[in-house]
Design a protein around this nucleic acid. Structure first.
Lengths: 249, 249
DNA sequence: CAGCCCTGAATAGTCATATTATATGACCCC
DNA sequence: GGGGTCATATAATATGACTATTCAGGGCTG
C-alpha cells in the first residue's frame, strides 16, 4: 500500500476535509470573486448535504487559511488573494491538484531559488555534526537504485527538509516543508529515476551541497543547491516539451 | 480611533478568536509538548466556559494552521512544530505578542534578506508603469514629516507589499504581506521617525529601490533593498543596546 | 501458548434546533 | 440633510442527542 499521506493529496476522508478541499479548490480556481460573498450557510448546507456544524467548521478552516472572513449580518466574504495562505500544506496541495501550470511552477521556482540558497548558506555557517550526518544519510537514501518515482521524491523531500532544519531557522524550516511538498508532486510528471544519468547527476548535486555545508563554505553551498534546483527545473521543461511534441503528433 | 486592525494584533473580539489566540499563544510558548495530547474537549470547555460548538471551531482553526490534529478516540494531538504555519498572519501576530526576542528577529531578518532582494529583482525585471507609480506614491507617503510611529509603519508596510505585488509572483506577494506584519510590530520599539536623519536615510533608501526597479537594474534593486533591511536591523540593535544599558543603571 | 477476532468503551465527528449578538439599511425625528 | 433608532438578516453561540472510529482487552481458535 503506497504511503501517499505524506503528500497530503490523497486523504481527506472526513466530510469536513472533503468539503474544505472542494471549496478551497474552487476558491483557488477563482470561482468566487474576491470581495464578493460566498453562498450563504443554508445554500452550502443544501449543496453538500451536511449539518450546519460541519459547514461552519469548514468555513472556519477556510477562514483560518485566510480565504474568507465571516461577519454577522454580512455573510462570508472572499478576501483578497493577497491574504490567502499559499504557504500552507493544504492550500498548496489543493493548488497542485488543480494543475501544475508553467506559471505556477515558475513562481514556485523563483521562491525556491531565493530561499533555499539562503537556507543552505545558513546551514554551512552553523553546521552541526548531527545535521551533516543526517544530510549524508539522506543522500545515501537518494542514491539507492531501487527507487520508484514516489520513493525517490520522498527521499528528495527529506533532504530538503533536513536542509531547512540545519539552517537553524524555524521559519526557513517551516517554509521548506511546505514548498517541497509541491515539488514532490511535480515528480509525478518527471523524475530523475527515469534516467540513470539524471539520477546520478542529481545525487551528486546533492552530495556537493553536503560537502560545502560540512566545510562551512557558505557560498559554495548556496551555489550547489541552486544548481540542483536548476537541474530539476530543466528536467521538467524538457519533459513538458516532449509531452507537447507528442501531443501535436 | 486608531486603525490598529491592520496589524491584526488588537482585534480578536469573538470568543472564538480570543480562545484561538490564547491556545495558539500557549502552543507557541511550548506549553503543550509536541506529540502529546491537548486537554480533552470537555476540559477545554470547562476551562473557557464556552459551548462545544465554539470549542470545536477553535480546534478546527488550530488544526487548519497546522498546530494540532484531531482524531476520533485518540484526542487532539500537538503536531511537530515543523508543521506549524508560521507564515500565517494570525500565527505571526501571536508570536509577536509573545515577544520579539533577538532569536526570532534574527530568523525573520534572515528570511527577509533572502526573499526581498529576489522580489525586488523580479520587480525590476518585470517593471510595469503602474507598479512603479504605486511605489513612487508609497515613497512619497513615507517622506511625509507628520508621521507617527504607527502611520510610518503602515506606509513602510505598503511599500514592501507593493514590492511583493510588483514582483508579479503571487507567492512572493503572499509572503511579503505576512512578514511585513511582524516587521511593523517591531517599529513600536524603534522607528525611523524618532530621528530626522534616520527618517531621511530610510526614505532615500526606499527611493533608491524604486529607481533601480524603474531602470530595470535587477542587481541594483536587490542591493538597495538589502541596504534598507540592514538599516532597519541596525536601528533595532542600537535601540536595544541602549535600552539594556538603561536597564542596568 | 500465540495469534486473531470480537466486543466494549472512549473520544471526536455529525446532526438538529433554539437562542443571542451584530451589522446593515431604512426610516424617522430633529 | 444629519444623526439617531429600529427592524431584519445573518452569523455566532449554546445545548443535547446520536454516530463513527479506533484503541485496548479479553476470549476464542489454532
Amino acid at each position: 500500500m503506497p504511503r501517499l499521506s505524506r503528500l497530503a493529496l490523497e486523504r481527506a476522508r472526513s466530510s469536513h476535509d472533503q468539503i474544505a478541499a472542494i471549496l478551497g479548490t474552487e476558491l483557488l480556481r477563482g470561482a468566487y470573486a474576491p470581495g464578493s460573498n460566498m453562498p450563504s450557510e443554508p445554500e452550502l448546507i443544501e449543496r453538500f448535504q451536511v449539518s450546519r456544524t460541519v459547514m461552519r467548521e469548514v468555513m472556519k478552516t477556510l477562514a483560518a487559511k485566510g480565504f474568507v472572513i465571516s461577519k454577522t449580518r454580512v455573510g462570508t466574504r472572499v478576501r483578497d488573494p493577497v491574504y490567502w495562505n499559499y504557504f500552507d500544506a493544504d492550500v498548496l496541495a489543493w493548488r497542485v491538484r488543480l494543475g501544475l501550470d508553467d506559471e505556477f511552477m515558475k513562481s514556485l521556482t523563483e521562491v525556491r531559488r531565493s530561499l533555499e540558497p539562503a537556507a543552505a548558506a545558513l546551514a554551512a555557517q552553523r553546521r552541526s555534526p548531527t545535521d551533516v550526518a543526517r544530510l549524508r544519510e539522506c543522500v545515501r537514501q537518494m542514491a539507492r537504485t531501487d527507487h520508484t518515482r514516489q520513493s525517490f521524491a520522498e527521499a528528495d523531500l527529506d533532504f530538503h527538509l533536513a536542509i531547512g532544519s540545519a539552517s537553524g531557522n524555524p521559519l526557513m524550516r517551516s517554509m521548506a516543508s511546505v514548498i517541497e511538498t509541491a515539488l514532490v508532486a511535480s515528480f509525478a510528471h518527471s523524475s530523475p529515476v527515469d534516467d540513470p544519468a539524471d539520477h546520478e547527476a542529481t545525487v551528486n548535486g546533492h552530495a556537493a551541497i553536503v560537502d560545502a555545508i560540512e566545510t562551512g563554505e557558505e557560498q559554495a553551498a548556496a551555489d550547489a543547491i541552486l544548481k540542483v534546483i536548476d537541474i530539476g527545473v530543466n528536467r521538467i521543461d524538457v519533459t513538458r516539451k516532449k509531452q507537447r511534441g507528442q501531443a501535436k503528433k
